[in-house]
C-alpha cells in the first residue's frame, strides 16, 4: 500500500526496568528490551501477563512507577507519530463507518487526495466498502475490530502500537491483516503488536513472551524454537478427549494438550526416546494410535516456557 512517503520514526525504542503496580497487583516487574527500527515486534502471553500495560506505557498513556523509555527519534513524541489501537477501542457508536474514519483523518489533518485514496483502500481492505453508512454500534464484533484498526491506519504514523488487533477477526481477514502489516513494514513503519494467537508470533521479527509481568523469553521465532527444551510428539488416536484426561495424570509426560484433531505431548529430554514413549503409551491407551516426533510451533514453545500447569 503506497502509504505516507515520509516516515519519520527512524530510530529505535528502548525500555529499561519498567515496573508498574495497580494497588497490590504488580503488572510489570522491571522489564527491559530494545526494539529496532522497522521491526515487527510481537508481545505474547496470557491475559494478565502485562502486555497491554506495557504497550500503553510506550504510548505515554500510562506512567510507569519506575524505569525508563527512550526513543532514538525525538519525533516519536510529536502528536501523530505514534498510532495506538487499545484493546478496548472506543469508537463513536453513533457515528457511521465513514464518519468514524473521516473523524480520524480530520484529527490528524490528512487532506486532499491522500485522504480519499486511503479512505478507499482501507475500506476495501477491511471489506467494509458496502457498509460505510452503517452505525459503528450496528457492526458485527469482527467488523468493529477492523474499523478500529483502519481508523489508526487512516493517519498511518511511523510507529504503530496495536493491542490485539486480530482478536475476533476471522481467519481470512486475519491473514489479510498480516499481509497489510508486512506491507506497512516495507514502507518503513515500525510495528508493536500483541496477540493471543501464538502462531502469529512467527510473523514477527522479534517476540517477547510475557508472563506475570515478566519477560519469559525474547528473540526471533527461530531462536525461540531452537531453545525449546523438550521432545515433542504428535499423537493421533480415537477418543482423543478421553485419552487426554488419562494422559494428563501421567508423571512421565511434561505436558499433553489437544492441537486440532491430535494431541501434543512433551517429554523432558532424558526421559527416553520415541520407542520408550511409544511403549509407555501402549500401556496407557487402549485405542489404536499413531505417534511421531515433531518440531515445536510457537504455541508449544510458549507452553514449554510457561510455569503454570
Amino acid at each position: 500500500m503506497p502509504h505516507s512517503a515520509s516516515v519519520q520514526f527512524n530510530g529505535y525504542l528502548e525500555f529499561s526496568e519498567i515496573s508498574k503496580s495497580y494497588g497490590e497487583v504488580s503488572a510489570l516487574q522491571k522489564v527491559s528490551g530494545h526494539i529496532p527500527k522497522n521491526n515487527i515486534c510481537g508481545f505474547i502471553g496470557p491475559d494478565g501477563a502485562g502486555k497491554s500495560t506495557l504497550l500503553s506505557t510506550f504510548v505515554g498513556l500510562n506512567k510507569p512507577d519506575s524505569g525508563e523509555i527512550s526513543y532514538a527519534s525525538s519525533d516519536a513524541r510529536q502528536p501523530g507519530s505514534i498510532g495506538y489501537m487499545p484493546q478496548q477501542f472506543s469508537m463513536y457508536g453513533d457515528l457511521t463507518v465513514q464518519e468514524n474514519l473521516l473523524f480520524f483523518a480530520d484529527l490528524y489533518k490528512i487532506k486532499g487526495e491522500l485522504r480519499q485514496q486511503r479512505f478507499e483502500e482501507l475500506l476495501h481492505f477491511s471489506r467494509l466498502t458496502d457498509f460505510t453508512g452503517r452505525l459503528a454500534d450496528n457492526l458485527s464484533g469482527g467488523m468493529r475490530q477492523k474499523l478500529a484498526l483502519i481508523c489508526v491506519l487512516m493517519y498511518a504514523p511511523p510507529l504503530l502500537i496495536l493491542d490485539e488487533p486480530t482478536t475476533g477477526v476471522d481467519p481470512i481477514a486475519r491473514s489479510e491483516l498480516w499481509d497489510m502489516l508486512h506491507q506497512l513494514q516495507s514502507d518503513g513503519h515500525t510495528i508493536l503488536i500483541s496477540t493471543p494467537y501464538m502462531e502469529e508470533a512467527v510473523q514477527c521479527d522479534q517476540v517477547f513472551f510475557l508472563s506475570h509481568g515478566n519477560i519469559l523469553a525474547t528473540g526471533s521465532p527461530d531462536e525461540l524454537q531452537a531453545g525449546y527444551a523438550y521432545q515433542l510428539y504428535e499423537l493421533k488416536c480415537e477418543n482423543m478427549m478421553e485419552n487426554l484426561s488419562l494422559l494428563q495424570q501421567e508423571p512421565w509426560i511434561h505436558l499433553v494438550y489437544p492441537k486440532g484433531d491430535r494431541l501434543h505431548l512433551s517429554v523432558a529430554e532424558g526421559k527416553g526416546d520415541e520407542a520408550k514413549v511409544r511403549k509407555n503409551l501402549e500401556r496407557q491407551i487402549a485405542d489404536k494410535f499413531s505417534l511421531r516426533r515433531i518440531k515445536p510451533g510457537m504455541e508449544d514453545v510458549y507452553a514449554g516456557l510457561e510455569e503454570r500447569i
Binding site: 502471553g45 496470557p46 491475559d47 484493546q87 464484533g141 490485539e164 482478536t167 475476533g168 493471543p196 501464538m198 478427549m241 487426554l244 484426561s245 494438550y257 489437544p258 504455541e299 510458549y302 507452553a303 510457561e306 503454570r308 500447569i309
Partner: peptide
C-alpha cells in the same frame, strides 16, 4: 474463547 490464551482455552474446551 476470543482473546483467551491457549492454556485457558484448552481448559475451557475440556
Amino acid at each position: 474463547t476470543s482473546g483467551v490464551d491457549p492454556s485457558a482455552r484448552r481448559q475451557f474446551w475440556q
